[in-house]
Design a protein around this nucleic acid. Structure first.
Length: 895
RNA sequence: GGGCGGAUAGCUCAGUGGGAGAGCACCUGCCUUACAAGCAGGGGGUCGUAGGUUCGAAACCUAUUCCGCCCACCA
């Protein structure tokens, strides 16, 4: 007996995550296993992290997103890929500026007192202090990013990429500047893109207002309906539909705007729905997006009565200085007094809100920069249609098309201080505009009075470049060469338009290739009742708190298990416990195995083909099932079936390995030391646990790593280990159906025991069980005691019948105590040889077919290289498989 | 208005043509030398509704109801 080198004594009696996790994370970093080597001679696999906001603290969305990415990266490393997982953070313009402004406010200051330069400096300081917090939290989760490559969207390199992209698009005419009606947040005091507006249904009033005709002798008028009476002050026309029989006679007449007394024309425009309301619409070009378009078509004046702060402007006359909502009330009451308010009915309608501060958006006329998106979007739709980009689950494809095909120009300028300043300069002398990557010395007119545009870019502009800007673009780098395009993007559906679509846009435009071939869209994490988690509801589960109490592995396993394609995740504490219990089960099963390997020779190994002779049914069965699970897991990971893969392991480890194999292996393990039976069982434990730990490692890296080291499988930490390969022992396929049969019988017997209330540990001399088939033939008669049964499974006898399903009926009779239990079978050598030979035949025919194909000159020369390569690999594979099968036959004959 | 998803056990959800399942909760019995964070057994569902296809439907088709989400310029 060799000295034990296994770490049983080091294993606590139950699974305690705390100290293990920090220890292993430090070791992984020290060993540099997360580093991506672009020069490695391996197939590439790359992911760029969805950069969390620097303001952020790890929430469950991040936890899920990064768990899934980590599972993929770790599995791919084990499968022999060179893996790059690119980490970093986003400067998150408005969000970060708001946070820092709040800290200023607490000091009784505001950013304007500080001035732009000092304020931006202050944000940088804030970023240096807090920006790394989320990175530390990702490490807690176990994220295997290549941290040495960490990027920030406002790094020097990324900033120069931003300027280059801006200038290029400007030169191509895809970026322009102009005065348009945009979404404006009166609190943040900046423009927002259409996407940054949240539409919410609100209860409001629908006011019917009378506009008197301007003709001196006519005191009648027409009625229009509005939800925003305060904009009456900015009315420039009344519009009706050209084919509206009810109203078309009004066209050409003039009406008097209530309160202001301004005289405006009645015009015709297709935008009006003749069926809706009175069929006549007031047109306020400066305060409504539709009206703005009508105003442009008819060359109407834009009268701005609300300013950037949402306050009525000088143009609003006596209402000037009032808040827009106050003004609404005042005007309604004035209209009522004037007798011009016909009606005010309740009306539910959708109102835009700022996605950052929830303030009601004001359509606001101002000078902004835009990206002309239509020409870019066409190529992006084409890329998805051509299959260059695949959405998983597929249903998101149509969502993407729908948006891309109806895309509108993207307002990219923001009136903020934190962000990438727009690289445009204005000449105070000639009024010219210079767009350039670097600050120009002077204007074309020779003037040096140049001012840079005050605005910064939408934060999503820089994140749109993330997949290539982080890899060093616009320089050409080894990293880009090796890892662009990335393999898969993993993110939530909430940023498909904000981010995914725009990355595709920029990737195709600047790299000529889509930035990723797969987009895995995962669900939202909600609370156990399906409610969105929010601080106000008090239903937030903090992942860091979960990690503290249950460990990162428990959280990761829970999230992975609940991730089923296309379905939201409802999370609760009790659910996390379920999976923590699993970790404990795995832990204790490992302790059991280690205990029984402890007296094994040091040089323990996997079972060999010759060992099959000493195996019992359950031995062959567990090897077969392990092989199945390896194959399943490989496919499931490849297809992004996270929930299914976690479930597969859960069910296999708990329901098969622990519940059945470990129990059935006990008699052999208690046998004489060095006996063939004991030795072969030890080999099986050794090899099955090795494969199980490997398969679980991507999902629960910390605990598997700890167990791996306790098993002393090798000096290599598990992250460098290879992905397991399905073993091919003779006789294991038939073991599965035979085992099914036995399990059926055992379950039936336990059932019966419970029904007749047979105490545990007690033999039942007066009871036997008779199992019958459908024709009432007695198949099995057995004493019901479980221990006896186990002993019987151990001493297998040859079965006279070949049924693969348990008998239909079972009845208990009292009678003589009779032992007769022909369960399962020993390996039927002749039958197994015949089966293998049959398989070998099929394999030979397949080999011949491929050989023929490869001998065909046309095929080799004309077919795509990868197809030919695939066939070559298939040939190699089947050749080595034939060899294995022949060895198996030889071994069976020897035995 | 357009699009998408869901409806299966008390709860949360698997199950893509042939025995209705898991976890949690509940009941019964067990501290059996890996694990009481465990083991064994059990109760509980006309698979939203109505048609259709099929020898056979929880699954496929059609219609319908309810719930959730996304998009959209309904003044």
């Amino acid at each position: 007996m060799g000295t034990s080198r296994r770490g049983l004594s080091a294993l606590t009696k139950s699974y305690e995550p705390g100290p293990i996790e920090d220890k292993w994370y430090a070791k992984w970093i020290e060993d540099g296993i997360f580093k991506a080597d672009p020069r490695a001679d391996k197939k590439p696999f790359s992911i760029v992290i969805p950069p969390p906001n620097v303001t952020g603290s790890l929430h469950l969305g991040h936890a899920l997103d990064n768990t899934l990415q980590d599972i993929l990266c770790r599995a791919k490393r084990m499968q022999g890929f060179k893996v790059l997982w690119m980490p970093g953070t986003d400067h998150a313009g408005i969000a970060t500026q708001n946070v820092v402004e709040r800290t200023l406010m607490a000091e009784g200051k505001n950013r304007h007192e500080l001035g732009r330069e000092a304020f931006v400096k202050r944000v940088w300081e804030w970023k240096e202090e807090y920006g790394s917090r989320i990175i530390g939290q990702l490490k807690k989760l176990g994220a295997s990013c290549d941290w040495e490559r960490e990027r920030f969207t406002m790094d020097l390199g990324l900033s120069s990429a931003v300027r280059k992209v801006f200038v290029d698009l400007y030169k191509k005419g895809l970026i322009y500047r102009g005065k348009y009606l945009i979404n404006w947040c009166p609190r943040c005091l900046t423009a927002l893109s259409d996407l940054e507006v949240d539409h919410k249904e609100l209860d409001g009033k629908f006011y019917s207002v009378k506009y008197i005709f301007a003709d001196k002798d006519d005191s009648s008028g027409l009625t229009v309906m509005t939800t925003r009476p305060e904009t009456i002050l900015g009315d420039a026309a009344i519009a009706v539909h050209p084919r509206d029989e009810r109203n078309r006679h009004l066209v050409g007449r003039n009406v008097i705007v209530p309160i202001t007394g301004r005289v405006i024309p009645v015009i015709e425009d297709n935008m009006v729905d003749p069926e809706f309301g009175t069929g006549a619409v007031k047109i306020t070009p400066a305060h409504d997006p539709n009206d703005f378009l009508v105003g442009q078509r008819h060359n109407l004046e834009s009268i701005q009565v609300i300013d950037s702060r949402g306050i009525m402007s000088e143009e609003a006359g006596k209402y000037a200085g009032a808040d827009r909502f106050e003004a609404r009330e005042l005007i309604v009451s004035d209209l009522r007094e004037l007798g011009l308010l016909i009606d005010a009915s309740d009306h539910r309608h959708s109102v835009g809100h700022c996605y950052r501060c929830n303030t009601v958006i004001e359509p606001y006329l101002s000078e902004q920069w835009f990206v002309r998106t239509k020409p870019l979007a066409d190529a992006d739709v084409a890329a998805v249609k051509a299959g260059d980009i695949r959405f998983i689950p597929e249903q998101w494809t149509s969502t993407y098309y729908q948006w891309m095909e109806n895309i509108r120009d993207w307002c990219i300028s923001r009136q903020l201080w934190w962000g990438h300043r727009i690289p445009a300069w204005y000449c105070d002398d000639c009024g010219g505009v210079i767009v350039s990557e670097e600050a120009p010395e002077s204007c074309k007119c020779g003037s040096k009075n140049l001012r840079q545009d005050e605005d910064v870019l939408d934060t999503w502009f820089s994140s749109a470049l993330w997949p290539f800007s982080t890899m060093g673009w616009p320089q050409s780098t080894e990293t880009l060469e090796a890892f662009y395009p990335t393999t898969v993007l993993v993110t939530g559906f909430d940023i498909i338009f904000f981010w995914v679509a725009r990355m595709i846009m920029m990737g195709i435009e600047f790299m000529k290739r889509p930035p990723f071939s797969h987009v895995y869209i995962h669900a939202l994490v909600r609370d156990e009742h399906g409610q969105k988690m929010s601080k106000s509801k008090g239903n937030v589960i903090d992942p860091l708190d979960i990690i503290d109490r249950h460990g990162a592995d428990a959280l990761r396993l829970t999230l992975a298990s609940l991730t089923l394609q296309g379905r939201d995740i409802f999370l609760s504490e009790s659910r996390i416990e379920t999976y923590r219990f699993f970790l404990n089960k795995l832990w204790n099963a490992s302790r059991f195995a280690l205990m029984n390997l402890d007296d094994a020779p040091d040089a323990i190994e996997s079972p060999s083909v010759d060992d099959i002779r000493h195996m019992r049914l359950h031995d062959r069965w567990i090897l077969a099932r392990t092989s199945d699970v390896i194959k399943d897991m490989t496919d499931l990971i490849e297809g992004y079936f996270f929930g299914e893969s976690a479930r597969t392991m859960y069910d296999f480890v708990w329901g098969e390995l622990c519940d059945w194999y470990l129990e059935l292996s006990k008699p052999a393990l208690r046998g004489d030391e060095g006996s063939d039976r004991k030795c072969v069982t030890q080999k099986i434990l050794y090899s099955v646990f090795r494969d199980v730990l490997k398969l679980l490692h991507p999902i629960i890296p910390f605990s598997t790593e700890e167990l791996w080291s306790a098993f002393a499988y090798g000096d290599d930490i598990i992250g460098r280990g290879e992905w397991p390969v399905p073993a091919d022992y003779p006789g294991i396929e038939t073991a599965k159906s035979d085992m099914d049969y036995i399990q059926g019988i055992i379950r039936a017997m336990r059932n019966l025991r419970a029904e007749v209330k047979l105490p545990p540990q007690q033999m039942a001399p007066m009871m036997s069980i008779r199992l019958e088939d459908e024709s009432k033939n007695t198949l099995v008669r057995e004493n019901s005691d479980l221990i006896t049964l186990m002993a019987k499974v151990e001493n297998v006898e040859i079965s006279p019948f070949g049924s693969t399903k348990p008998p239909k009926s079972i009845s208990a009779v009292t009678g003589e105590w009779e032992m007769f239990f022909p369960v399962g079978s020993l390996l039927d050598v002749e039958r197994e040889i015949a089966r293998i030979e049959d398989e070998l035949g099929k394999l030979t025919r397949e080999t011949d077919r491929i050989k023929g194909k490869l001998d065909n000159k046309n095929f080799v020369e004309r077919a795509p290289a990868e197809v030919v390569e695939k066939e070559r690999m298939a040939l190699e594979e089947s050749a080595s498989r034939s060899l294995r099968l022949e060895e198996n036959i030889a071994s069976l004959r020897r035995g």
